[in-house]
Write a protein that binds this DNA or RNA. Structure first.
Lengths: 195, 195, 195, 195
DNA sequence: AATGAATGAGTCTTCATTCAT
DNA sequence: TATGAATGAAGACTCATTCAT
């Protein structure tokens, strides 16, 4: 038998490329860069990926899948609705914000290389279903009107991603923790509960 | 070297490039594309701009200047604070959202080619100073804590830009009007006043 | 190294390659194409053939051998000379013309990969010996002068092959039957006999 | 004003490429070969031609145009029909046979890169119209039947080209002069006149 | 000043062949 | 023996920028 596909190599290529794409952008990263950084011969890159675009697509798809799988597992778990929301804000989102490279790519290149609207649809639906399961506090004066739900989730989600992205490279005086705290605060008020 | 004589030509190059950069991205737009689209000879492009990067920089700087000048003129005007806020939301922001090409470039390329943190600093300061001038309604339960002010402005501003950007190309079921209405609603609640 | 065990596999590779080479040309056919089309693993190709060039050489040599063996068997048979000529024109040539793929390869690639002059020498000698055995009709006014014999056979043979080749792919309004009929007519007149 | 298109350069590229393509074949000739042989930088090749294929197409088209223009000028001239035929055989054809490189390319690559059927159509029509203008000698026993006219012209034309092509590289004992003489002889007999 | 041909480093990608398994 | 991942030289082509005219 001949050598068989080495999943480790594939991952190394993916990780190296992700870092390069995030740092320098897709177009400023050459296959030669990936070759240099991974130490693999060019041919090997093309053994595991169809072309340069395929690499970024796989980065985005697989990165997103992981995030979305986490999100869904929370939604489908048996914990109380409010706990679900808390977990999303305290665990899922921070975890995503941690992966700056992925965010960077998601916001700058993903739109060109993947079907972003599907992802946004799934995201808003999932978040929405978690929110709807929460009994509204009587005193909540600031509930988000039903019609704004999608818009608000999208604006908010994209906003925190973009903010996290910029704050990683540029000095803006905003930390990831600020973003998380702010998120918690906004959601608390909007939903009318204490998180 | 970049001597601008004919302001009309310079603007044509700028407008054409802006549209091309927004549509296809900076790297997918060649100088040859700009030449084809403007009808000018290559040499002419280099008479008005130092290089390709100079073009995108000028697009961003001048686009931003215009937006920021508008914003400042509102802040410095004599109308009551709440009216300032209303004008920002009902005029300044919608005007910016209208200029999809600029937003596109701001969000995807500007970060690489301009000093984004300065712009964000100026933006948050200006918005903040407008907000601070508004006497808080007693009943406002949802005021943004002082410490979150910057974060919230940045998240919000970047969020609406990114949302507007995506919604222009991809079918997400969110219109610019949705974004404006949502903005108005959020601000009203946060500040505790009726806009 | 090129150990042929399974004659069936070897033939499949040869047939598939012949068809591919004829359709797309030697250089536009990759080993990967042959792999895909035969379903064999790459290694197997190299078990039966030394390299890509070896494949085309074998196609040409073996194809030619078959044709030439047929031709010789006619020449060496006991039938009358005129019948030999008739058989060549009515059976051997049509059979060759049928094998478009071989002709294609013979005319476009063979010259580079095999010793074509040997083949032509053998061909003209064989045809010549068949013709010489035919007693010239007294009334034949159009006999080919002895010195033109070789030239005429070569020009004619190459001409019908090339014509058949082109007419297979391009609409020229010439069929294989036209070529055969024309051949018969020319030979009849040249040799001064009725075929 | 900038430098203007240099027709000399274009021709040098064309001539060099023609020689290389004829010698080594289209696929065995790299752009790097053309660069080395012409001494021009790569970019210059692409200033004058769209791509590699464009080069071979131009070689074929322009070479053919020249040949065909000559042929037509004979057909349309005022000399007697038989003289036209003689000129074709003694001048036009030999001239074409001289241009081995062109023939080589015509026969091996042209079919893939140009519309060969159009050329053949035009060729047969032109030759045919010259032949038809010649009053048939009463004693001509070997006239080509009308239906075979096209086939015979095509087979003959392609045959002499292919023969000339091979005889240039391989020792077959056939010279260009043999081909011309043979042609003259065949035509004389077929048409029933003395050339 | 205006022009556009000239330039060549650098891009992505291919593919015949090998050889570890 | 059978396999197919590994390899890297070589391929065609691009394009921002310059500079001769």
């Amino acid at each position: 038998m001949a050598r068989s596909r080495d999943e480790t190599k594939r991952n190394q290529i993916l990780l190296t490329s992700k870092s390069l794409f995030a740092d320098k952008g897709f177009f400023n990263t050459s296959i030669a860069d990936i070759v240099r950084e991974t130490g693999f011969p060019v041919g090997t890159i093309y053994t595991y990926f169809q072309n340069k675009e395929d690499i970024i697509q796989k980065i985005v798809e697989e990165g997103w899948e992981e995030f979305y799988a986490n999100l869904k597992s929370i939604r489908d778990s048996n914990i109380p609705p409010v706990e679900k929301l808390r977990t999303v804000i305290e665990e899922i989102i921070p975890e995503l914000l941690q992966d700056v490279d992925l965010i960077n790519i998601l916001l700058t290149e993903a739109i060109q290389y993947t079907i972003i609207e599907d992802k946004i649809e799934k995201l808003t639906d999932t978040i929405d279903s978690i929110l709807q399961a929460i009994p509204q506090s009587k005193s909540a004066l600031t509930n988000i009107p039903r019609g704004f739900m999608k818009t608000s989730i999208v604006v908010f989600f994209l906003g925190i991603l973009q903010t996290a992205k910029i704050s990683k490279t540029k000095v803006m005086g905003i930390t990831n923790q600020d973003i998380i705290d702010f998120t918690k605060s906004v959601i608390s008020q909007s939903v009318g509960i204490k998180l």
